[in-house]
């Protein structure tokens, strides 16, 4: 167990700054191994330099987010996911 590993729910804050949908319950499919699951059930590495959501099955980087330190600009890389399935919560 890596001491700096968090679960995907730790990314709720930064993802909520970008997406209007609740992202921790969004389902992903990993480009590398095909595993599917909710973002909140994946692994997360969160630091000042950026946030990385990694596949709980194969460790592939699913979602990467970097934020300029003044908060004025974000970069989002979704190359690690085949798709995101988003649910509207009414």
């Amino acid at each position: 167990m890596d001491e700096r590993r968090l679960d995907g729910n730790a990314t709720a804050g930064v993802l909520a700054e970008i997406f209007t949908f609740e992202m921790t319950t969004a389902r992903t499919a990993c480009v590398h191994c095909g595993a599917t699951g909710e973002v909140g059930a994946q692994m997360a590495y969160v630091s000042e330099i950026g946030t990385v959501v990694r596949c709980a099955s194969c460790n592939n980087a699913l979602i990467r987010v970097a934020r300029q330190d003044d908060g004025g600009r974000y970069w989002l890389d979704l190359r690690g996911v085949k798709y995101l399935q988003l649910e509207e919560h009414l």
Binding site: D2, E3, R4, R5, M43, Y45, S47, E48, I49, G50, V52, R54, N59, A61
Partner: peptide, 8 residues
């Protein structure tokens, strides 16, 4: 400080 983008 230690910054990690993945497992060690």
């Amino acid at each position: 400080p230690v910054l990690s983008a993945g497992p060690t």
